[in-house]
């Protein structure tokens, strides 16, 4: 069962970006570019998601020779379930807003 513990706008943005390709490993800088978050916001958020077992993190060898390994991230099964929940709630909120405008 997934607890509803991450509901800030920034957390949703990160969850949804990671959920676009849930099996792919993503790097910190890629997430910064895709979410528009600053590093001082993104990394504490990633740490919290990892503490809550919603995010996997592991070191991957760098694609460029001579550079150190990079830390990569992807959602766990719990993280995917939470992202699905966030996505469906966002969709229903938007549908509700569209219905109110119609």
């Amino acid at each position: 069962m997934v607890r509803r513990i991450n509901s800030s706008q920034q957390t949703r943005a990160v969850l949804l970006v990671l959920f676009e390709r849930p099996q792919s490993w993503r790097y910190g800088y890629d997430l910064i570019k895709e979410t528009g978050l600053r590093s001082g916001t993104l990394y504490p958020l990633l740490m919290r998601l990892h503490d809550q077992a919603l995010l996997d993190a592991e070191w991957h060898p760098s694609a460029q020779a001579g550079r150190p390994p990079r830390h990569a991230y992807r959602l766990t099964q719990n993280g995917i379930a939470l992202a699905e929940e966030v996505l469906s709630s966002t969709t229903s909120t938007l549908a509700g807003a569209a219905g109110a405008l119609a």
Binding site: R38, L42, S62, Q64, R67, P68, P69, R70
Partner: peptide, 22 residues
């Protein structure tokens, strides 16, 4: 350490804001 490794993959004009945020 992840932040320190990541900065090597960031363009130099974005490196300082990234580092200060970290």
């Amino acid at each position: 350490l992840a932040m320190q490794a990541e900065i090597l993959n960031i363009s130099s004009d974005k490196a300082l804001p990234f580092a200060l945020g970290c």
